[in-house]
């Protein structure tokens, strides 16, 4: 693990809000630094193939989710959750090795970029199909119930667009019926790729959907780290105490293209001027300074530390070997004896 040892998870008392805030900010900073580096490696060409999806501006809501979870909990991040992943405990190397397609990464070059995870450590590797991870979290929580594991929580991230899927409906209803400790964090960043909210749903506010499912809904300003920490923190706590599924809807604006291939020209300019268009990292930094929870020298030190962690992770990952089709284990089954065509010349596929 390349993360600094002085940032352990879940060791700070919840009462010490400023300490939590500082910790969260440092994950946000590390996430932003990581993503900027990934984007620059991508733009320099050749090293990163496939998509690059950034969470710029979304770090506050994401980190608040990751930080509210603890060992034994489940997290199903989506494409804009670099900060939450770090706070949950994913190593920076898992990110860089996967983006660079290294054989030694958790996905071994078989899957890339944001499609990484470690299911046995509670971190689910997202499939692309939006909405599909929620019921998987439900099942993990059902397993905990069968096994008598108490007080665990599962969180799943989602965008505004994903709330229109059938999978969203089925899984939120399933969680409600089973009264599962699921926290569904919907980040309404006003767009799903190029589609604005008014072509995505017709309800006044996505949080109203909670009523229809008989679960609790929470709204939060996704640009305000303090609010995100409080609202997500209490939603997670409610779920942990057996109060059933919690829907959190955070409001913000996607500050980057859908992916690095997208110039996001379609984003309505007036949105950028609104409070929801603020950059949550900049807002959090101002808050730190204003409350004297950190001075600018300290923040500069954190920035330097983030840069050096990211540089190390990228340099290490660039040296790692790529997957080799000749030695790749082309077997999709864990029961190897039932796999077809392993030793064939191809005629049996």
């Amino acid at each position: 693990m390349l993360q600094s040892a002085e940032m352990p998870r879940h060791t700070v008392k919840a009462s010490d809000f400023s300490e939590t805030y500082r910790r969260a900010f440092r994950w946000m900073l590390l996430a932003r630094t990581t993503e900027e580096k990934i984007a620059s490696v991508f733009r320099s060409g050749g090293k990163i193939t496939g998509g690059v999806f950034l969470g710029k501006g979304q770090e506050a809501i994401s980190v608040a989710t990751g930080i509210a979870l603890r060992n034994g909990d489940i997290f199903a991040p989506l494409i804009r959750d670099q900060a939450g992943r770090l706070a949950f405990g994913e190593s920076l190397l898992d990110c860089t090795l996967t983006y660079l397609g290294a054989r030694s990464g958790p996905m071994r070059g078989r899957d890339g970029n944001v499609h990484r995870g470690r299911p046995l450590e509670g971190l689910l590797p997202m499939i692309s199909h939006l909405g599909a991870m929620i019921s998987v979290v439900n099942g993990m929580l059902m397993a905990h119930r069968f096994q008598g594991k108490k007080n665990t929580v599962g969180a799943a991230s989602l965008g505004d667009g994903a709330t229109s899927t059938g999978a969203f409906h089925e899984s939120i209803n399933q969680a409600a019926v089973e009264n599962l400790p699921l926290v569904l964090v919907v980040t309404n960043n006003q767009y799903a790729y190029s589609t604005p909210n008014d072509r995505q749903f017709a309800c006044a506010d996505l949080v109203d959907k909670a009523i229809g499912y008989g679960i609790r809904g929470h709204s939060v300003d996704g640009t305000d780290l303090g609010a995100c920490l409080r609202v997500i923190g209490s939603a997670v706590e409610l779920a942990r105490q057996g109060e059933g599924p919690q829907l959190v809807v955070a409001t913000n604006l996607r500050l980057v293209g859908h992916g690095e291939h997208d110039d996001a020209h379609y984003i309505a300019p007036h949105l950028k001027e609104m409070p929801l268009g603020r950059d949550s990292l900049a807002v959090a930094e101002a808050e730190l300074l204003q409350n004297a929870w950190a001075d600018s020298e300290t923040i500069e030190g954190w920035t330097r530390d983030s840069i050096s962690q990211v540089e190390k992770a990228i340099a290490h990952s660039l040296r790692e070997p790529s997957p080799d089709p000749a030695t790749e284990d082309w077997c999709a089954l864990s029961s190897r004896h039932l796999a077809e065509g392993l030793s064939s010349n191809g005629s049996r596929g």
Partner: peptide
């Protein structure tokens, strides 16, 4: 008994299997 939700039925089974069920 499950709700009439084949997607969530299978999805949850997958999740449970990952946790050892």
């Amino acid at each position: 008994d499950s709700p009439i939700s084949e997607d969530a039925m299978v999805g949850s089974a997958i999740g449970a299997s990952l946790q050892g069920m």
